[in-house]
Every structure is written in structure tokens, then in C-alpha cells.
């Protein structure tokens, strides 16, 4: 078992970071968001199937339901947070040129936040 205490320097440990400077917290955030996503994604799949080919009015009525609106916002937040953490690892694994890596990491953050803001705004606009 790789334990955090051994794999990090005293300073990094004090700052809550792992050996690479950021490992421990990132790892946990990925697990916690994954756990939250299990029920949320099951809910999404059931909801989407129920709305296959449904007319606009029915979809609006579904999203406007307070429970559904809240779950949808939670799903968007959890999925995009989890996705951003995951894509970050993928970029760090494959892109080694510093400048390209930082460009992609930045793009990852901006796109994630942009898509999240737009999607949440759409839900609120329907529900409120």
C-alpha cells in the first residue's frame, strides 16, 4: 500500500499534498465525485429513457420539477468536476512538453467550467 505519509515530504504533507505535490487530494476528489455519480448517473439513464422522443413540453415539465432540477444541477456539477480531474490525469500522463501541457490543462479547466455554467443556466432557466 502506498501511503501518503511515506510518499511525500514533510512540507508537502503539511500542505496536504502527495509525493508529486498534489496527488492525495486529487485522488480523493476523484473517488468522492465517482461515488456521488453512481446514483446520479443511474437516475439520468432512467430519466433519459423515459423521455426518448418526447415532445418539448414534456421535457420542460420534467426538468421544471424541483427534485429533477436539483438532481440535474448536482449531476452536472459532479460529472464535470470528476471529468476535469480525470482529463487532467490523462493530459499529465501523455503530454510532457511543459508549454503544451499547461495550455491543455488550462483549456480543460475553461471548457469544463464553461460547459457547466451553460448547462446549469439552462436548467435554472427552465425551472425558475
Amino acid at each position: 500500500m502506498a501511503d501518503l505519509a511515506k510518499s511525500s515530504s514533510p512540507l508537502a504533507r503539511a500542505q496536504g499534498a502527495g509525493g508529486a505535490g498534489h496527488g492525495g487530494e486529487h485522488w480523493w476528489a476523484q473517488r468522492v465525485s465517482a461515488l456521488a455519480l453512481v446514483p446520479l448517473v443511474i437516475w439520468l439513464l432512467v430519466s433519459l429513457v423515459a423521455m426518448v422522443g418526447a415532445p418539448h413540453a414534456q421535457v420542460i415539465a420534467f426538468i421544471a420539477e424541483p427534485y429533477n432540477a436539483v438532481l440535474m444541477v448536482l449531476l452536472i456539477a459532479a460529472a464535470l468536476y470528476h471529468s476535469q480531474l480525470g482529463i487532467q490525469v490523462v493530459i499529465e500522463d501523455y503530454i510532457h512538453k511543459e508549454s503544451s501541457k499547461w495550455m491543455l490543462l488550462l483549456l480543460n479547466r475553461f471548457l469544463t467550467i464553461g460547459v457547466g455554467a451553460a448547462a446549469i443556466f439552462a436548467v435554472l432557466r427552465i425551472a425558475l
Binding site: 426538468i63 440535474m72 460547459v115 448547462a119 443556466f121 439552462a122 427552465i126
Partner: peptide, 13 residues
Amino acid sequence: GAFLIAWWLIAAA
């Protein structure tokens, strides 16, 4: 695929 879900919601709105 997250873009697709966002598109679906934005289109509905």
C-alpha cells in the same frame, strides 16, 4: 459526451 447533455439542456431551454 458532456457536451451532448449540455446541448440537450440548452436546446430545451
